[in-house]
Nucleic acid binder design. Structure first.
Lengths: 232, 232
DNA sequence: CCTTTTGATTGACAAATGTCAATCCGCCGA
DNA sequence: TCGGCGGATTGACATTTGTCAATCAAAAGG
């Protein structure tokens, strides 16, 4: 792999504490690949041969059963995905596909496991990352089980706006059909949900969303750190 | 803590690899406590001061939001719970209460984190445990998003029967109202769901369930390792 | 033994969500 | 520019799920 990517990858907490030597060794066995949009990178059920890192673009994790499919998460640079399967040397529980043109790093799982056994700090970092992922899915599960679809959408919009910055409006990061699947509803239902939030100051213009009165929307959505704060 | 509990706790994968000395040291700072049924052990939002281990009885993990409550998981001996919060030194995302009279071990979180930094094998074990928990919640999320409540119940019954052994019937491990909440539905809906499974050979007698034709039920439920096999 | 309590069940109804089909709209390529 | 394609939206309708109230059954306690 070209060394020009090293600095980007080093920004990940997972690798920040590694010695240059160990990091370089890990990278030497790895690959960087570019993918066009809508390419399936990983199929659920396959053995986890590589730890994936997304450098640019966007990746969707999804799952299927009995002819149905649902969006589980969207991954944006720079982060790893499907760490647990790599560590456990198990099969992927989710599939992954590119949403946009994306650049990925593939690190052989065996190398990650070896490094884990050799490097105390790396082990610590892996655990922190795993715990983070675990807690995120718990939050997501609480979101699903405790809220109606309207409430889920309202809180999602609040989180997105907070991420976008100080402006009252922002762009949805992907198609509405994906958002619907991610929130656990149909596209038709999402359309109606957007209308249902109009009284609370949500203005929709294509994929551009404006929240005209945050306090009003919050009064309805009731965001809560133990569900909506993905940083803790 | 009385040493008489040591052998039981040592059966946990998490502690199996520790030297006797380190294990004893960890236990010396810990407590064993007995609790009656229906006692709240942990409240979501509180800082995670202790890693909990259940030695006997049963514990329910649940979460609340906006006056609603949902069952997230049931924990049975001998296992730990809420490991991620302990490791991250973060707040609990779920509350916990005893279902039955239960005996618990409480290990100060700081001791767990210290041991993690000192002991390579322990770190490995923590990661394995965390990865396991993480993958379990992913499975649970797939179950929730990809299946109807009837399908969730059918697959739940198949899993329970497999756990119970070779007999076609088994006892539900807790109240139906808890089961309903766990499966993401109301008690009324669960009642109707049981009736809906009658054509597939599910016979209900109080909390005793019999599956008269497993093949028939499987044809409807379509169990799948990537959702229903909690061992991988 | 009887009473009280709690959970389970049922029916009637309401609300939420999904399905299907038609239409609309923006984008891209010919 | 003009189609045509795919996603978004809408309306009508079906299904699923939740809510409320009443009733039933079993367990707990006096």
């Amino acid at each position: 792999m070209p060394e020009s990517y090293y600095p980007d990858i080093k920004t990940l907490d997972l690798f920040a504490g590694l010695t240059d030597e160990r990091f370089a060794q890990l990278m030497r066995g790895s690959y960087v690949q570019n993918f066009p949009p809508h390419v399936e990178l990983i199929t659920e059920g396959d053995p986890a041969n590589f730890l994936h890192i997304i450098l640019s673009g966007a990746v969707e994790l999804f799952a299927s059963w009995n002819g149905r499919e649902t969006s589980m998460a969207a991954i944006r640079p720079i982060s790893t995905f499907i760490l647990a399967a790599t560590i456990k040397d198990a099969r992927y529980l989710m599939s992954a596909r590119t949403l946009d043109k994306s650049r990925l790093v593939l690190i052989p799982s065996q190398d990650v496991r070896n490094l884990f056994d050799e490097d105390q700090g790396f082990a610590r970092a892996i655990v922190t990352e795993l715990a983070q992922c675990y807690r995120s899915t718990i939050k997501s599960q609480k979101d699903l089980k405790l809220r109606t679809s309207l409430e889920r959408l309202a809180n999602y919009l609040l989180r997105q706006q907070a991420r976008a910055g100080t402006t009252p409006d922002f762009e949805l990061p992907f198609e509405k059909r994906k958002l619907a699947s991610f929130l656990g509803m149909t596209p038709e239902n999402l359309s109606r949900a957007f209308k249902g939030l109009k009284p609370y100051g949500v203005v929709v213009d294509g994929s551009r969303i404006a929240i005209t009165d945050r306090a009003e929307l919050e009064a309805f959505a009731r965001p809560c750190a133990l569900i909506d704060d993905y940083s803790t």
